[in-house]
Structures are given as C-alpha cells and as structure tokens.
Design a protein around this nucleic acid. Structure first.
Length: 679
RNA sequence: CGCGGAGUGGAGCAGUGGUAGCUCGUCGGGCUCAUAACCCGAAAGUCGUAGGUUCGAGUCCUACCUCCGCAACCA
C-alpha cells in the first residue's frame, strides 16, 4: 500500500427506481464509509465517490406504470437516496447522478474513443419491433404464451409461472405491452465489446496478480474466466439513456452497464473539473470499488476491460465485495416490499444512525450471506452499545463529576496493573489496522469494542468508588487512566459510529483527533474540564422492535394484495372449441414428490377407468403431498400425454392461482364418483 | 447431473493444516460508581454424513444428505 500516494474509493451506484435499504448499506456504503473515514483519520489523501444510476429499462417501465416520465422517477429517488445517505453520515465527497449533463458528455466521449480505436465490433440481429409505438421492444416489454407451461402472461425474458428463461422469439402469440400490437421482427445494429479479446490479460491480471482479493471475488472471476468470455452488447434500442454518439445510431442508447461505471469518472470530473485525472490516471493512485456480490463480474472483468480498451486509465487495485444481507430469514426484496428502508428508519428511529451502522457492521455479510433481525438489533444495542460502550463512558464521567467536579485528575505513579491495562489497550490500534487494511470491518469493530471492555474491567478491578475513601492519590491516577481510555474510544469509534464519536469528543472537550493518537495516554490534559455528561446510547424497549416487525409483516401483506389484479381475460372461444376439452373428477390414490424437481408432484389418480398418472407442478404449494391422498381433484383428461422428468403425465390437474402465486387445487364441493365429467 | 454459496455449543457468527473460538443467551458467584448496567467463573460442540490424503483435518480430496441464493428488477 505504501507504493500509492492516494486512494480513490467508489461505491456501487444505487439504481434510482427505489430507495436504499439496509442490504445496500451493509454490503457497500457502510463498509466504504468506514474505510474512507479511517484513511482520512490517518491523514491520507482520499476521494469518496457515489451517485445514482438513473438509466435502463426498469426505470422506463416504472415510469410508464405510474404515468410519469423517467426523469420524474429518478428525480424522486435520487433525492430520497442522497438525503438519506447524508443523514446516515455516509461521507461522500460527491454524490451525483448519471442523468447529469457532465455524465452524458463523459460517457459519450468514452464510447466515441473506443469506437474510434476500433475496440467494438458491430453486429446486426433481428429483434421485435412495435409497429404502432414505433420502437424496438426490450425483452420485458414483450408478453406472450410460454411454450413450456402455456402460461399466457410470460415475459420475453422469462416465464414467471414455470420459471424457465426464454428468448422473446420463443413466445407464442407475442404482443407488445406498450401498444398491445403484434410485434414484427426487424433488423437492428448494435455495438459489442469483445470481452473474449481481453481474456488473456484479464486472466493474468486477476488470477496471478490479484490473489489477495477476497475469496468470493476471486472465485467468481475465475469461474467466469474459465467459462470463456463472450462479446457483450454495449448499446440498446431505447429512448432513455445516453445516446450512442455515432452516425446512424438514432434511437439507440448506451447499455446501462456500460454507462453506469463511467458515472464514477463523471462524478469525479464534476467535483474536480481541473484535477480529476490524477485520481484516475496517475499510477500513484489506488482505486477501490466497494460493491455487492451481484456486481463482481462488472467491476472485475467488464469495467476493467473498458478501461483497458480506452488505454489511459488505472485498473482497480481491489474490489471488496460483500455477500447479501437477509431480513428476518427472508431475502430482501424491493418488489415484495420486504426491506428496511433507510429513509424510513431515519424517520422512525431519530438519532439512531450509529446504532444501525454498528449493527450492520457487527453482522456484516463479509464472508457469507447473513441475517438481520430486529431482535438482534435490539440485543446489540442494549447489550453491547449501551451496556459495554455507553456504560463504561458513563461510569468514568459520572465518577469524574462526583470526585473532581468534572476536571481531569492528576496522574500519579503508575502501578503494575495500570501498565498492564495500558499495554493491553495499546494493542487495539495495531489489531484494528490489521483488520481495516484487509477490509475486515466486523473484526475491526470488535477490536474497538475491546477498548470499552478493558475499561469496564479496569474499573471493576480498581473499585475507585471504594478507594476514594482511603487513597485519594491512587484514585486520581486510576480515574485519569480511565478517562484516557474513554478518549481513545472517541478515536477508535470515529470510522464506525461518527455521531457518537463526536458526542464523546464534545463531552471530553477533545478537539482535533488523529488516528496516530490512538493508544496514547495523554489525550486529556490534567485539569481540563469535561462537558455536560449525557448518555451515548439509550436502551431500545420491546415495543419499538415489535412495531418494526409488525410493520414489516403488514407491508408484506399489503403489497401482496395491492399488487394483485386478475389476469386479462383471453380471447373468446367458440363453444365447439371449448367442448373439445374433457374435464373429469378423480380421486388421489398416491402422491409423491418427483426427485430432482422442485415443483413437480407425481399423482396416481382413480379416474373410474383404471387409473392414470399425472405430473403436476404444484409441489411448492403442497409441501406434504401424502396428505393429498383421498382428496378429489379436477383434471383435463384428454391432453396429449407428455413426459415430464421422465414420467409420462396423462393429463393436467386444475388449480387456482392465488394472489401470492400459491396454487390451490380445485375440488368438487362434495365427493362424487371418480370419472365424472365436469362442464 | 444448470451455476454459485452455506452447514461449527441454545441463537447469531469467526476460524489462515498444528491445543475448537467470539458475541448474545443460560447457570453460579462478586460488585453496587454505572442505563437492573459492570466483573469473575461454569455448563454447553463426536465442526452435516461417510470415506480418503496427512505425523496431524473444522480446514485439503471424493461421494452423499440438508438448506439458501442466482438463472426475474434488486447490494
């Protein structure tokens, strides 16, 4: 690290189609902020870049759904995100956005330079085009019937009913979700970044020269490189984004993955119009990308390939990526509204920024996916922040007020036990540095906490409240040492809990702090006065936590209901057509899971005609298939037999699809003879 | 055989071939300055299962079992 003069830290650009939640924070922004604050405390030159990613198809879909413009959407969420980051103390030097003028210019220039250097290849392909709306259709804008499960509402990229991924060309009866028109195939030209040409140096650069990268990062890169890299389209047919700056590219924009990382560059430029290049091109600058695991490939392979193709930029020195944070046992999901939103947290838990920062760091998903629960949040606040950290500081300061009217007492001769205690807390600095330097913030935080534990033990062992009655000189020394430990806490916790650290500094009347002061025992001068003593943290009661848990469950329910709307009624069918379908009642004789298939159940049905086997994709709604034995079901009796997972299925069992996607078997309201017709 | 993770005391998590660890919880004791907080001690693990490599395996290899994520916007 000594070979670098300065550090550029970037954080993944949050996508501006929703607010930021605790998963984003734990994975990216809190660790990055800790690291940056640490470097600043050490007096190092550091630049911390963030911004919103505001292009791409999902934003246009959301805008269309709400009947507003994409710009309206990104303005709204950019505002919310920026404000909530500020309030949480994420200390960006700049937080900008990709819809800015300077970003459009920068990414445009970047594309043109690669274009002129011949770094792209051009390919023409056939894609669906909406003749009424006069535009090419992104996969998500096309719906049709799934060729596998016949779900009529499958998207162009995937069928949500059966889970298979699709190409728009596979859909039966495709239609545009914009106009409803039947799309036509039309030729379109796009530019591709030939990643395969970059494979060789990428292999060497990552696999040989960066073995120190975190194992999850290194492993995923290796897996991609071993599979072989493919050219990747850098443009799309869309009207929202940075226009492709080439003649004949009307109606095309840069693909969002191409323009988003350039946002790091644009934002640096915006902040430092005359000085930005040293942060990106000077070999003395170290670049770090803080991201989540879903972004590993882009930041380790794709973006470096772009930078290398351009020619004048540095490559990242490290890409510390975290895994994911789950919430109360379930994965966080924007669409299911299963999340703790930062802007709501800040409103509902005023003054508790540091509690969230602490909990997310103490339980950060550094090596594997971890779980956030409100119960754990409460425990960590009450048993660690309040009981260990807050309590130690409070004890030391209250005793100082009582004994000395708030003035730091004189230090006398140190006893052996004092020296031992001091030696022990002086180890904290080296331990913290070791962990911070390799991005292990969880362990670094634990070390910082160790300082408060040492302080508590010191007070318990020394018992100054007893000793004051017999030995005032000795008591003064003990309290002096205890106060120095408190002062050290103010430095050690600055990267993690900056609001609390500041409060503590104020109480101790400390002015400037430096990382290099950590471990010193002369941070507070004899006779200097401590300010008003207040509690650093407050207990969180059960009802606060219960409120949050309840809120989560409510939101989930509400979301399921509000999102539900009955599927569109299909085109009318003449009676003769309908009549061809033969629906019967059958009694379940046997039912079991199909091995190696998540969704399939195998039924043996008494159909009154000797029985038949039917395979049905309802396993996820009926986890205990044996309980279905004896129940009656409706089934289509005259489907062509079909092989599913090697089992011949002679028909289809009818189920209703509930709002939450759960399948519910249809059953006659009283038992009837197996084989009865339904009509 | 789609791809990738993960299985470690009651809970949540570390663990880098060399004596199984941390936080919380539980139990016992101490203290009473402190937000019923703090300090000391104890119990609690055949490290998913079965093989293998090794002087030595939680760690490396093989097979299997279980759970999760991804392949859909989303860190």
């Amino acid at each position: 690290m000594d070979k670098f003069k300065r550090t550029l830290v970037t954080t993944a650009l949050p996508y501006a189609n929703g607010p930021v939640h605790i998963g984003h924070l734990a994975g990216v922004y809190v660790p990055a902020d800790i690291y940056v604050r640490y470097l600043r405390l050490k007096g190092e030159e550091v630049l911390f870049i963030g911004g919103s990613d505001e292009h791409g198809v999902p934003i246009t879909i959301k805008a269309r759904k709400e009947g507003v413009t994409p710009q309206d959407i990104v303005d709204r969420y950019h505002g919310i995100i920026k404000k909530s980051f500020e309030e949480l103390g994420i200390s960006f030097d700049i937080y900008s956005r990709t819809s800015s003028k300077i970003h459009h210019e920068t990414s445009s220039d970047f594309f043109r330079r690669l274009y002129e250097k011949g770094e792209f290849i051009e390919k023409t392909s056939e894609q669906y085009y909406d003749p009424e709306a006069n535009q090419f259709l992104a996969d998500r804008y096309i719906m049709g019937t799934c060729p596998h499960c016949k779900n009529p509402n499958a998207y162009g990229d995937q069928c949500e009913a059966c889970g298979t991924s699709l190409s728009p060309l596979e859909l039966i009866d495709p239609h545009s979700t914009i106009s409803g028109a039947k799309p036509i195939l039309k030729e379109t030209k796009h530019w591709y970044l030939p990643l395969d040409k970059h494979e060789e140096w990428l292999r060497k650069w990552i696999l040989e020269e960066h073995k120190e990268w975190k194992t999850n990062v290194y492993g995923q890169c290796k897996s991609w490189l071993d599979m072989g890299l493919q050219p990747r389209a850098v443009s799309r047919d869309l009207d929202w984004g940075v226009p492709v700056p080439v003649e004949g590219a009307e109606g095309k924009v840069l693909y969002v993955w191409f323009d988003a990382p350039i946002g790091y560059i644009s934002n640096t430029k915006e902040l430092l119009p005359n000085d930005w290049e040293k942060w990106w091109k000077d070999k003395d600058t170290r670049m770090l990308h803080f991201i989540g695991k879903d972004n590993i490939v882009f930041h380790c392979i794709v973006f470096p390939a772009m930078l290398k193709a351009e020619g004048s930029y540095n490559l990242p020195d490290n890409v510390p990526a975290n895994e994911f944070l789950n919430l109360e046992g379930d994965k966080i999901s924007t669409s299911r509204n299963w999340a703790v939103w930062l802007h709501e947290y800040l409103q509902e838990m005023p003054g508790k920024q540091d509690v969230l920062r602490y909990v997310l760091t103490a339980n950060a998903p550094e090596t594997k996916d971890n779980d956030f629960t409100w119960k754990d949040f409460q425990t960590r606040n009450n048993s660690e922040l309040v009981a260990i950290f807050g309590n130690f500081v409070n004890r030391a300061l209250v005793l100082t007020q009582k004994f000395y009217g708030g003035a730091v007492p004189a230090i006398g001769e140190l006893a052996e036990i004092d020296r031992q205690t001091i030696a022990e807390f002086q180890k904290v600095k080296a331990n913290m540095e070791h962990n911070l330097d390799i991005f292990r913030f969880r362990d670094a935080l634990k070390e910082a906490m160790e300082l408060a534990r040492i302080g508590n033990k010191y007070l318990a062992d020394m018992e100054p409240w007893k000793l004051i009655k017999t030995d005032e000189v000795r008591t003064a020394t003990i309290m002096h040492v205890a106060l120095q430990i408190a002062a050290n806490l103010a430095i050690a916790f600055e990267p993690f809990t900056p609001f609390t650290a500041k409060k503590l500094r104020n109480m101790l009347s400390m002015s400037e702090i430096k990382w290099s002061d950590l471990g010193r025992i002369d941070l507070l001068k004899e006779g200097s006065h401590i300010g008003q003593v207040e509690l650093l943290f407050e207990k969180i009661e059960d009802d606060v936590v219960a409120f949050q848990i309840n809120k989560l469950e409510e939101a989930k329910k509400k979301n399921e209901l509000s999102n539900y709307k009955p599927a569109e009624v299909k085109a009318n069918v003449p009676f003769e057509e309908w009549e061809k379908t033969d629906i019967r009642v059958g009694t379940v004789l046997e039912c079991c899971k199909v091995p190696k298939a998540d969704k399939l159940l195998q039924f043996r049905i008494d159909d009154g005609m000797g029985g038949r086997t039917i395979v049905s994709g309802i396993a996820q709604s009926y986890p205990e298939p044996e309980k279905l034995v004896g129940r009656q079901v409706l089934f289509i009796a005259n489907f062509e037999p079909r092989k599913l997972r090697g089992i011949v299925s002679e028909g289809m069992i009818l189920s209703a699809v509930d709002a939450d996607g759960k399948l519910v078997l249809c059953e006659p309201s009283r038992e009837v003879k197996p084989g009865c017709t339904v009509g």
